[in-house]
Amino acid sequence: MSTRTRTPHGATEPVTTRALSPHRTLATARRVLRQLSHDRRTIALLLLLPVLLLVLLYYVFDADRRSFDSIGASLLGIFPMITMFLVTSIATLRERTTGTLERLLAMPLGKADLVLGYALAFGVLAVVQASLATGVAVWALDLDFAGSPWLLLLIALLDALLGTALGLFVSAFATSEFQAVQFMPAVIFPQLLLCGLFAPRDSMQPALEAVSHALPMSYAVDGMTEVLHHPDVTGAFVRDALVVAGSALLVLVVGAATLRRRTT
């Protein structure tokens, strides 16, 4: 073992902890992506599974292309949310249980750096995932929609951020991977049932319809439907996108509040 000679203490200038530093946020995002890069199978599953499921859906609706169009478009928004929810909840749970979170919070890292670092890393991944799925849906499976594929991509990205935010938030309430995985059906499935994919929301029992108005996935699916039917950016699309983005931001802030520097 060797040592290095060093200037005496006190000469080092103090590093301050700011709430947010772009440098630390980017370093965190790079670290998360580097972790994933050592796990090729997870990347393959993340990227290929939505594509394969779309192909499956295409043949399920072999005789009913209109249904494929509407359900396929909705799924393009739902996939990123589910996968990012799962990946984030497990990843942050690991941070909590392996002690890396405690170490990071004892260092000059802002909570926002950590949360945004994760959002950025998984956002990048979601863009790749959604581009691939949208590309295959549009060109190989002839998914027919009126609007721009960029708008589909935008909703998919916002959905992914919402999934990341929800995953981060629920990981605070899980003490094991078993529990974290169970939060997926608990948080995602009710939204899936009420988002209008299975039955139009206005045909639901009025109480449920009201609940569906409060769930962000409903707006994600509405946004996708807008792109499906309208060539231009409609007011409804802008509203839907804003609701999903606002929900993601809100949950991220709440999620950041669950990160405690001092624990009992």
Partner: peptide, 16 residues
């Protein structure tokens, strides 16, 4: 925070 190094009992580094 930048002036103190703390090493927990179980190694707190990223296994991956």
């Amino acid at each position: 925070r930048p002036r103190l190094g703390y090493v927990t009992q179980s190694p707190s580094v990223y296994a991956d």
